[in-house]
Simulated assay, not measured.
Amino acid sequence: MIGVLLLGILALVVGGCVCVVWADRGGPRWTRAVAAATVGTGQVLRRYQKSQRREVGGDAGGDGD
Rank of each mutant, 00 (worst) to 15 (best):
L6S: 10
V56I: 13
S51W: 11
G62A: 08
W30G: 01
A11N: 02
G16Q: 09
G61Y: 08
L12C: 11
L6V: 15
Q52D: 08
V14I: 15
G64S: 06
K50C: 04
T38R: 01
V4H: 07
V56E: 13
V39D: 04
C19P: 00
T38I: 03
C17M: 11
G27A: 13
G40W: 07
G8N: 11
A23K: 04
L45R: 01
V21T: 12
V13G: 01
D59L: 10
G26L: 08
D63N: 03
V13T: 12
V56D: 05
G8H: 08
D59W: 04
V34F: 06
R46N: 04
L12A: 12
T41Q: 01
Q43G: 13
R32S: 12
D65E: 11
A35E: 10
R32W: 08
D63T: 02
D59A: 07
G27Q: 06
W30R: 04
Y48N: 02
G42D: 06
A37R: 04
L6I: 15
R54V: 10
L12M: 12
L45V: 15
Q49P: 00
V14S: 03
G57I: 06
L5P: 00
G58V: 12
L7R: 10
D65R: 08
A36S: 09
A11M: 11
V44D: 04
M1A: 15
Q49H: 06
G58W: 07
G42Q: 08
V56N: 02
I9D: 05
D63S: 05
R47H: 02
D63L: 09
I2V: 11
G27C: 06
C19H: 03
I2H: 04
A60W: 02
L10G: 07
A33S: 05
G26E: 07
G42A: 13
